[in-house]
Design a protein around this nucleic acid. Sequence first.
DNA 1: TATGAATGAGGGTTCATTCAT
DNA 2: GATGAATGAACCCTCATTCAT
Lengths: 199, 199, 199, 199
Amino acid sequence: MARKIDPEQHEGKRQEILAAAHRCFLRNGLQGASISMICKEAGMSPGHLYHYFPSKEAIIEQMADDYLAALHGHFGGHGKETPTATVLLSELWSMSGWDDLSHCRILFELLAEAGRNPRIHAILRDNTDGIRDLLTATLATGQARGEVDPSLDPRHTSAVLVAVLDAAPMLPLMTDGLDFEESRKLITTMISRFLRPQP
Amino acid sequence: MARKIDPEQHEGKRQEILAAAHRCFLRNGLQGASISMICKEAGMSPGHLYHYFPSKEAIIEQMADDYLAALHGHFGGHGKETPTATVLLSELWSMSGWDDLSHCRILFELLAEAGRNPRIHAILRDNTDGIRDLLTATLATGQARGEVDPSLDPRHTSAVLVAVLDAAPMLPLMTDGLDFEESRKLITTMISRFLRPQP
Amino acid sequence: MARKIDPEQHEGKRQEILAAAHRCFLRNGLQGASISMICKEAGMSPGHLYHYFPSKEAIIEQMADDYLAALHGHFGGHGKETPTATVLLSELWSMSGWDDLSHCRILFELLAEAGRNPRIHAILRDNTDGIRDLLTATLATGQARGEVDPSLDPRHTSAVLVAVLDAAPMLPLMTDGLDFEESRKLITTMISRFLRPQP
Amino acid sequence: MARKIDPEQHEGKRQEILAAAHRCFLRNGLQGASISMICKEAGMSPGHLYHYFPSKEAIIEQMADDYLAALHGHFGGHGKETPTATVLLSELWSMSGWDDLSHCRILFELLAEAGRNPRIHAILRDNTDGIRDLLTATLATGQARGEVDPSLDPRHTSAVLVAVLDAAPMLPLMTDGLDFEESRKLITTMISRFLRPQP
DNA sequence: TATGAATGAGGGTTCATTCAT
DNA sequence: GATGAATGAACCCTCATTCAT
């Protein structure tokens, strides 16, 4: 009897390729990273790589999807009781991964690509929608509890909050010798003052 | 008999090339836009283009410099008396160019590139420094006038403000059917609440 | 316990592969059809396919042999008494398969390949020899009966007849909106006038 | 002042490439001949070749067009007075190029390709139409002069004649040690008996 | 028997760049 | 100043084939 495909092993290889691709994209950009580069990084021949992904585009899209899901996925684990917005936001900054911002540069690759590639645009939008839904609900709850300014539209506000959040990786790129911890506090302060009920 | 080169005409050609390159970069990305593409867009042969720029890299760098200078240059025209921070910020949003955000996508190309290209990184940093100096001074003046929260460190705060400003073009990419005018108001509100003296 | 290979089943698989290959070659040409394509068409893995054929070349050669044998094999079933040449020829056109000429395009693949591949050349020649032998004998019989022009050399004439026969599939490729039935009649007329005793 | 493109030199290079491609196609087939092979044959780098042709497909199509025009083009030079059909046909066989049939194998490549590539199909059809028009007119004239069987439909007959003509290169491929001169005479006899008025 | 993993050379094509004119 | 000829490495991807299971 012939061996059927082992889905676990297959998926494992896919993940290896995606991880290798992620590293290459980080080093050289989405277009600058070549398939042969990714193959070398993954210890794999080009022919074999195409056994797991039909095209470079597919690798980019899967990587984008996974990356954005991971980036925004830290919010999902807070359990049943939704925290107030301010608490939630303050927790954002403590999430793992933000400590090493370098890997966040891929976000800019994706933003750039999204402007001209409809599929990447859709992936970005869909992944953003997920976290916006959560933020919108959290803001509404906060408003009901009197912890968030009720005059702010939750839906619109959620978009601004995500943008501000994702803008943080800009800071080390734009400024030299940045004290990121200090900037983190400032952004937290800004959001806190933004959201809280006005006198 | 031989004509000396006319510096003005020479500079004019350079500008034409840079404008053509900008359009190509916008359409295809920094790496996706090819020299021959730029040549076609500029109505010029490759040999001739290399008369004005020594390499594609040089075109990208010059374009980056010009673009960032223009993007952040709107603040320079306010004359002698520095406006208060809040007024300044509110004016940011009325600056020409923000109406059509599409051209801002190049910013993300540059942010992505800056992460792996030290020369682009330097150009980005230097151009950001200029506006940060201005913002820092404005914030300090605002604090002296009692219009800005004196507990905010002007230098750090300027970095956050620039990041928030540059994050705005993310919004249309991340969200579908965005009401950008509404978002603009929200960001203005956020900054205003952030900066104003706390009770 | 181990099953011995079943020669019948083995041959059955080979036929399946050859049929799948034939369809692929028809769609994409001998070189344009890939092994993986043939595998998909045959519902088989590449490793398994190589269990039945040692190489793609072997598949092509076997397919060529089978195809030519089938193409020219319609003449074999006429029993003991050889028909006169004219009758034989008129029957050629009623043979099954000529109604759908599309599958005959493979003949041109083989002719093209035969020009540079000695093995295909040999297969083509050998298969043609078979039908030429039959035609030669038929022509000689016809001459003996006074139904065929005795001045025609039977051996040379048989080659021309086969060529004319195999040229028929060119017609739909070369002319638009061809009335193939009409052309069939014309060719029959041509051969009939060619062969019959001259006054 | 810059040198404008020299159309003659440009066309000359194109012809060189086409000639090199023709030789490669003859040796290895349309799909078997690679661009790098053609480049080597033409003494040219791949980048440069693509300066003259946008794709391999374009090379094939141009080659096909030129080849078929040359193959069928020998009929054009007969001047004003159309010869009778029999004379015309007899002249076909004396045309230069038929002596070396090897280059005619490309015809089979084109026939095979025409079956699955609509553009090659169109090129083949269009080129065949040209010679069919001439043959049709010649046949009609021959009928008016009483030299051609008036019961033959000139249009349909022209198609059959072209097919028979183009089938000639099959003979050396199909038969071993062929006396091509003898076959030529046989085909001429066949056509002559086919066309002449019946008693 | 039968599978899919695995290879690496080669496919067509584009690239940034240089050079003679 | 300005052109288009010319390069050859590298691009993404597919190929026929082998091998462990």
